[in-house]
């Protein structure tokens, strides 16, 4: 029965991907892409990786979909959907070749990867009991710091380049009661994901994405006006504080223990939770700002 489900899921993912590629209208293509994201999230659950599934559903399908829909609205001209047959055939061949290379690379690895046993052995030292969080915020915290730097660069680009803003006016009065329910729920679920990240799937990225969903509801309901200097300033400061606090934590741990992001003995959990709490707010603010666009005036 589960094999039938898996087979249907695999066929569904490919089918929706084809629908996204060959849709005649841009909104239909984005819709198909979002459905594909949710099906891929489901397949991550089936593969036993709920952390990745949460991130894929919240960021890959949800927020990327929102960003794409927003951009599709801005690009008024429909693209030329009928490319030449040769370019379609060539890109298809390249994709198949790449997939074949990946398959060869995966199957040529002789032994099982060395990381899982290493992580399992040292999990007690990490301060958390969820191995994914242990890797992301302790063993390989350096990688996560650089990921936050990537988000930072993206946000700085969006702030510097004045693109037009989202105008939430025509959405009407139905959005306000919707936001009144969804925003508190998003705060609650985000806090839950953040806290449970220590010993179950969850963490700063997932919590931040859920919180950003609530933020988008506020923006679309017209309740959060980023044009106002105070609100926009607070949100920008929150977004930029993620990298600042993470960097400061790295320097502080280096001063305390001599290792960059090597937490003091017995205090790892407090450090991890503190960093993740700031990151959750910063990621949420960054994603809302990426959606909203620059708050600077467009020069005429």
């Amino acid at each position: 029965m589960t094999q039938l489900f898996d087979a249907l899921l695999a066929v569904g993912i490919v089918g929706v991907a084809v629908a996204a590629l060959f849709a005649n209208d841009r909104f239909a293509a984005v819709g198909a892409f979002m459905v594909m994201g949710f099906l891929v999230a489901l397949s991550w659950v089936r593969l036993g990786a709920p952390d990745v599934a949460l991130a894929e559903a919240a960021i890959g399908a949800g927020l990327t979909g929102a960003l794409l829909l927003r951009s599709a609205r801005r690009l008024r001209v429909e693209p030329k959907m009928c490319q030449s047959r040769w370019s379609v055939a060539a890109s298809g061949l390249i994709s198949i070749g790449f997939a074949g290379l990946l398959y060869a690379a995966i199957t040529s690895v002789p032994t099982v990867p060395a990381y899982p046993p290493l992580v399992a052995e040292r999990l007690g030292e990490s301060g958390v009991s969820n191995p994914v969080t242990a890797v992301l915020l302790n063993f390989r915290a350096w990688d996560t710091l650089l990921e936050i730097a990537v988000l930072f660069v993206a946000l700085v680009l969006v702030i510097v380049v004045p693109v037009s803003r989202v105008r939430p006016a025509p959405l009407g009065e139905m959005v306000v009661p919707f936001a009144k329910v969804v925003v508190p729920l998003s705060v609650l679920i985000s806090g839950h994901l953040l806290w449970q990240g220590a010993d179950a799937p969850g963490g700063a990225f997932q919590a931040g994405a859920v919180l950003a969903g609530g933020g988008l509801a506020l923006v679309l309901a017209g309740a959060m006006r980023l044009k106002k200097p105070l609100q926009g300033g607070i949100l920008r400061a929150t977004a930029l504080s993620g990298l600042a606090v993470f960097g400061a934590a790295a320097v502080a741990t280096a001063a305390l223990t001599g290792h960059l992001l090597g937490y003091p003995d017995g205090q790892a959990k407090i450090w991890i939770l503190g960093i993740e709490a700031v990151l959750t707010l910063a990621i949420a603010a960054t994603l809302v700002l990426l959606f909203h666009g620059s708050v600077r005036r467009v020069p005429k």
Partner: peptide, 19 residues
Amino acid sequence: LCGVLVALSGATTGHLIAQ
């Protein structure tokens, strides 16, 4: 929670699309 969220977002988005 899942049921409530689906009901709420379904009703709201339906209204928005129709509008």
